[in-house]
Computed example of a mutant assay.
Amino acid sequence: MLMNIIAAVLLDFILGDPYSFPHPVKLMGRIISLEDKLARKIDKSKLGLKIAGLIIVIMNICFGFFISYFLLKFIKQYKVIYNIINIYLIYTCIAARSLHYEAMKVYQALDIGIKEARTRLSYIVGRETKNLSEEKVMMATVETVAENTSDGVIVPLFFIMLFGVPGGLAYKFINTMDSMLGYMNEKYIDIGYFPAKTDDLFNYIPARITGLLMSIGSIGRFDIKNGFRIMIRDRKNHKSPNAVYPEAAVAGLLGIQLGGNNYYHGKLVEKPTIGDKLENINKNHIKNTIEIMYRSQVLILIIYSFVKLKII
Rank of each mutant, 00 (worst) to 15 (best):
I256D: 07
V165D: 02
E134V: 06
F163N: 06
V142F: 11
K197T: 04
T144L: 09
V142H: 09
M180N: 05
T210G: 03
Y188D: 01
R233P: 03
S150F: 00
Y171F: 14
V145L: 15
N203D: 07
H238A: 05
G220F: 04
N185M: 14
L254W: 12
I216S: 05
Y183E: 12
Y193S: 07
F202Q: 04
P156W: 05
Y171T: 14
L169N: 04
M139F: 06
I205L: 10
I232K: 09
G167T: 15
E135T: 05
A251P: 00
S179P: 04
I205K: 01
A243I: 08
I160D: 03
S218E: 02
Y188K: 00
I191Y: 02
K197N: 07
P206D: 09
G164P: 12
L132M: 10
N261F: 02
V153S: 03
V145E: 15
M177H: 00
N185F: 08
H238W: 00
K187I: 05
N148T: 10
R235Q: 10
V153N: 05
Q257W: 07
V145Q: 09
I216W: 00
F173N: 05
M161S: 12
G152E: 03
G252N: 03
E135C: 01
M231L: 08
M184R: 15
D199H: 00
L213Y: 10
Y183M: 04
V250S: 15
D178E: 03
I232M: 11
E147L: 13
L169E: 02
V155M: 04
I230Q: 05
V250T: 07
Y263H: 09
F228V: 08
T144I: 15
T141G: 13
A243F: 14
A251T: 03
I219T: 04
K236D: 14
S150P: 10
L253C: 13
P246E: 14
T141M: 13
V142G: 15
E143N: 15
R229D: 11
E147W: 08
N203T: 10
V155K: 04
M161C: 10
F202V: 13
Y188A: 00
I209E: 09
I256W: 02
I189H: 06
P195R: 07
L162C: 04
